[in-house]
Amino acid sequence: MVEGLGKRVVTEAYPWAPLEVPEGFRGKPVIDPEKCVGCGSCVNACPPNALTLSDDGRHRVVKLFLGRCIFCGRCEEVCPFNAIELTKEFELATSSTEDLVQEVRLVMAKCTVCGRPYATLREVRKVAESLPENLRGLAYVCPDCRGRISSYFVGFARR
């Protein structure tokens, strides 16, 4: 038994030397504020509600609170725009809660028919880009009004 002892040390020199983590390590998630469109997919998937969404009429805020995060990486998995990613960062201890919060504020788009804010401007533009030119205007109309408009046209066509 004595043979195995003292030969191999697994204790790391950390924190006096940096600690390597492997590829694919699930560390601190970071939202890229340039890419996020505020669609809320990550918010729906996040198990512990570390990600939340709030609207104040003019802005939509995607908020990440690391104090609740379990580093599962579901947000990264579901984000349609690769706007949120887990990093290798794990040194998150802090004496201030603010350090644990990331907020992305996005301007809301107003419906061109009823004037109600219904999605972020960035998301609406993305949708518009994906539509054929003659239908683009529809992207700037909220889902409710869009429904009314199309049923009007459908009703018109039946007549």
Binding site: R8, V10, V21, P22, E23, G24, F25, R26, F71, C72, G73, L86
Partner: peptide
């Protein structure tokens, strides 16, 4: 626990953290 440490490191490489979570 020293022997176990190796298992934990492999778990980290496989799953992204020392515990076989997620």
């Amino acid at each position: 626990w020293r022997i176990r440490e190796e298992v934990m490191r492999v778990a980290e490489a496989l799953t992204g953290n020392r515990k076989t979570y997620g």
